[in-house]
Design a protein around this nucleic acid. Structure first.
Lengths: 115, 115
DNA sequence: CTGACATTCAAGCCAATACTTGAATGAGGA
DNA sequence: TCCTCATTCAAGTATTGGCTTGAATGTCAG
């Protein structure tokens, strides 16, 4: 991605596998840069840069605690991506009803007490 | 996206806005390169290159008809993207049961809850 | 205060990408 | 056949993005 495109939008941000792994690892817990660096063969600088990209894309937010910065996943842009991809695939398959089904299912999960 | 990442995977392919527009335009109809070029300020060469990327990512397939190539959307990879994004956003929202439901529904692949 | 740790900043490098122009391939029509 | 249209191929260029190293910032522990 060079000319017109940009890594500061969501699609550009999730294009990188390292950043996707970070997001996955950030799934439910907030983690420090050091934690996120562990396992990857990269330096903390590299991970920090990736986190800046994710920040700019609105995919993560951070909490400063002493000399640690804890990063946490922000789901809203991901949901945009999911919607875009789901709509497009459903559109092609002419499964418009399935798209709506998914939307309802999603809606129902928020105000559902127990199954 | 330079080093580790690649435009031949789905996420890299949809990172480019031009390619996303192509996919959207391909929504329900198959279109020729010329048709897809119209409207963009780009050359047919550029669009052709983008289509090759989309082809390699499995996002489109083509039908050769005389001197025209008609490209058509292939929804499967998009559904992968949708699943990935939806799972992650749902994960964060503490809808773990729903995540598991989705996972089982799809592949029953291993989902690790790293502490 | 001093030292060690956690994170970011600043250059700088290399590879990959998006685009262009010009030529090549291939199919249809006169 | 010959010419034209539709598409791709082949360089070539500029820009971007990912990563590293080395220094700067800031914070806790002694």
């Amino acid at each position: 991605m060079a000319r017109g495109s940009a890594a500061h939008d969501v699609f550009g941000a999730i294009a990188d596998p390292t950043r996707r792994r970070i997001l996955e690892r950030l799934g439910n817990t907030e983690r420090s840069v050091n934690e996120l660096t562990a396992g990857t063969g990269l330096t903390t600088s590299a991970i920090s840069l990736h986190l800046q990209v994710l920040l700019r894309a609105g995919l993560v937010s951070r909490r400063v605690a002493g000399r640690h910065r804890f990063y946490r996943l922000d789901p809203a842009p991901l949901r945009d991506v999911a919607d875009w991809a789901a709509q497009l695939s459903a559109f092609w398959a002419h499964n418009l009803d399935r798209l709506q089904q998914l939307a309802e299912e999603k809606d129902a999960s928020s105000n559902r007490t127990e199954d």
